[in-house]
Design a protein around this nucleic acid. Structure first.
Lengths: 210, 210
DNA sequence: GGCCTAGAGCGACAACTGTCGCGTTAAGAT
DNA sequence: ATCTTAACGCGACAGTTGTCGCTCTAGGCC
């Protein structure tokens, strides 16, 4: 029945344990969505998951531990960057996805960001997730270069992506401005114009001091 | 001694009351700086301020109330946007100020941002402060137009400012990247290039759908 | 100087949070 | 089927947080 090559002398990750983990993580998301990151409490999660407080404390230690697990789980669902046929279209679509995730009520994304200030571990998990996503998105820039939309001169993909997406996060998360339906497109377009003007060309990296 | 025209029938804002307030607000900043937003507790503030717990609870209600007061106090110190003689220089200088405020350890700015997720009131106070600062900065753009650096065609100053500054906040606050000494200048330059390419011209506001 | 009272101090209290030791359940291996 | 023990359930516990009623101090006014 079990694979004889894999000896499991110690850990016991299946059955009840796995079920408890699933219940608890579901409960965390539900609580986050319902009460925001503020209302996320060990007690509440345990109760909603139908599990004893002590269990949650033992396995996840604190709220930060719960969030790490949730964030890591979010990183495991596979996500593909948009592919619309043009850089501007791709960035706009990407920004629209971002805007939606930040604007939807309740926003798990915002709750995770807010909550990741609570715990160093959660912050690191969050950082890892974002690094992955931005790395995945670099293909947008590569495709644009192949299509000839950007000069063959290599472009700093990451900077371009940050420039395109940062205004959304800034407006919606930090400045808490009302969502602007045109913002995704305008931010994307701004980045494309800047790229066309050579703002992200790698050659610029060599200091041309002010 | 007291001004006879100002009748103070109810409130009693002077003397001990004012002293207590000053002690408490100082204590909040000290605690924020020392233990981060995480270690900010009513108890700790009261103790450090040499004041009884109940007093803090009564006057500020909760941590959010304390932060509102601190943020509002920060808004009262008068701040002037840089004036270097060129748009690129101004934005670079602005970004350098931002980067420094975010990177310095401990960063009161980061602590306030993180903490403003705790309380709706603190978040609003924070939003007000930022709105003020960005409004003040619009003069950078006006001066650039007067100098002929930007087309006379009106430019959306706020969008330009956001585009120039957002990458800093995004990298340092949300992505938690290591500070890049060139980032302030590069982000400023990117915004200037985009502006020169017409990315923020008001005419664009009329929808040219994708 | 003396009076009035806003606001601070104080201690007691209930509610909540996190920890611990021990008994029970069921996953995994034979 | 049976055994071993990882992981969960449980109740008890100390420490912390926020509230309340009361007393006392000192600011503002005469």
């Amino acid at each position: 029945m079990t694979d004889p090559t894999t000896t499991t002398p110690d850990r016991r990750p299946g059955g009840r344990t796995a079920r408890v983990r699933a219940q608890v993580l579901d409960a965390v998301c539900a609580e986050l969505a319902e009460n925001g990151h503020e209302g996320l409490t060990m007690e509440g999660v345990a109760t909603r998951a139908g599990v004893h407080r002590t269990t949650v404390y033992r396995r996840w230690r604190d709220v930060g531990g719960l969030l790490v697990d949730v964030i890591d789980a979010a990183g495991e669902i596979d996500w593909q960057p948009p592919d619309t046929g043009s850089l501007r279209g791709d960035l706009t679509a990407l920004n629209q996805q971002i805007q939606e995730s930040l604007v939807v009520q309740p926003s798990l994304a915002v709750a995770l960001m807010a909550a990741s200030f609570h715990s160093e571990q959660a912050a690191r998990a969050q950082t890892r997730l974002w690094a992955d996503r931005y790395a995945q998105c670099e293909i947008l820039v590569e495709r644009a270069v192949e299509r000839g939309e950007l000069p063959a001169q290599r472009t700093d993909a990451r900077s371009l992506l940050i420039a395109a997406t940062a205004p959304l996060y800034h407006q919606l998360v930090l400045l808490r401005a009302d969502p602007d339906p045109h913002l995704p497109e305008r931010a994307a377009e701004t980045a494309v114009l800047a790229a066309a003007a050579g703002a992200f060309s790698v050659r610029r990296r060599r200091e041309e001091s002010m």
